[in-house]
């Protein structure tokens, strides 16, 4: 019985402890007087309502430090807000247009794009030439490809172009003879009298050069002439 009574008491204590845990008893009215001194009263009486005029500089410096938001609020009436919104919208539109124009200009002036854009109109001819010169097995793979597709191939363009030309003579020689043939077209007599030695060649493969500069008939005629001379 005693044990159960003790338990009940403890529970009750705990209950009250929890209930009054955050409860603060207000100090009795006379308590402050215990820690009170006549000096406090004297000072409170004299200095409690003390008033004094500060120097005018204080307001001047306070004025400069008043938050900008309080100053700006005064200026922002409803119509200034509308005007500001309109100006901002207009500026944004103009800015966007200008930006888009600048972007397109930049695309055209870009060296990579400059190279691609002019080649587009001649791509069909170029591809046609390649196809003409291609071998039969290559023809199949390259036919129908645009220049853009060819550029994107694994094989670089220059290599692709060169690989399609049969190496007859060194490139330098071919170009020289080609230039001389186009700039000063020879008539038959002149062409016949032209000696191979007169052309500045760096190769000994004269037969190949002849095959480029002379027609088949001219070569045959030349070979006949040579044979007669030998006899």
């Amino acid at each position: 019985m005693k044990v159960s009574n003790n338990n009940k008491k403890n529970e009750l204590d705990e209950f009250f402890k929890e209930g009054f845990n955050d409860f603060q008893v207000p100090p009795p009215s006379g308590l402050r007087k215990q820690d009170h001194d006549p000096i406090d009263d004297a000072f409170q009486q004299e200095l409690g309502d003390l008033e004094s005029t500060p120097s005018p500089e204080v307001w001047e410096s306070v004025k400069t430090r008043i938050p900008l938001s309080l100053k700006v609020k005064r200026q922002l009436t409803w119509w200034t807000k509308v005007a500001a919104a309109l100006i901002l919208g207009l500026a944004a539109t103009v800015g966007l247009k200008e930006y888009q124009r600048h972007q397109s200009d930049q695309m055209v002036s870009d060296p990579v794009n400059k190279e691609i854009i002019p080649t587009i109109p001649i791509e069909s001819d170029f591809v046609y030439e390649l196809q003409k010169e291609d071998h039969s097995d290559q023809k199949k793979s390259r036919r129908g490809k645009s220049a853009r597709e060819l550029l994107s191939d694994d094989e670089p363009l220059e290599e692709a172009r060169i690989s399609n030309i049969e190496p007859v003579a060194p490139l330098e020689t071919i170009s020289e003879t080609a230039v001389s043939a186009t700039e000063n077209p020879l008539d038959d007599k002149q062409r016949a009298s032209t000696k191979l030695g007169e052309i500045p060649l760096r190769t000994q493969n004269t037969a190949d050069i002849e095959s480029l500069t002379l027609t088949e008939e001219e070569i045959k005629a030349k070979q006949k002439k040579k044979a007669q001379e030998n006899r």
Binding site: L47, E51, K71, R74
Partner: peptide, 21 residues
């Protein structure tokens, strides 16, 4: 609060002496 400078100065003038105390 509306940003009227005269009101701000009036507030300061009215309370500055007490607060300075």
């Amino acid at each position: 609060i509306a940003g009227k400078p005269h009101a701000q100065e009036a507030l300061y003038t009215h309370f500055s002496q007490t607060m300075f105390g």
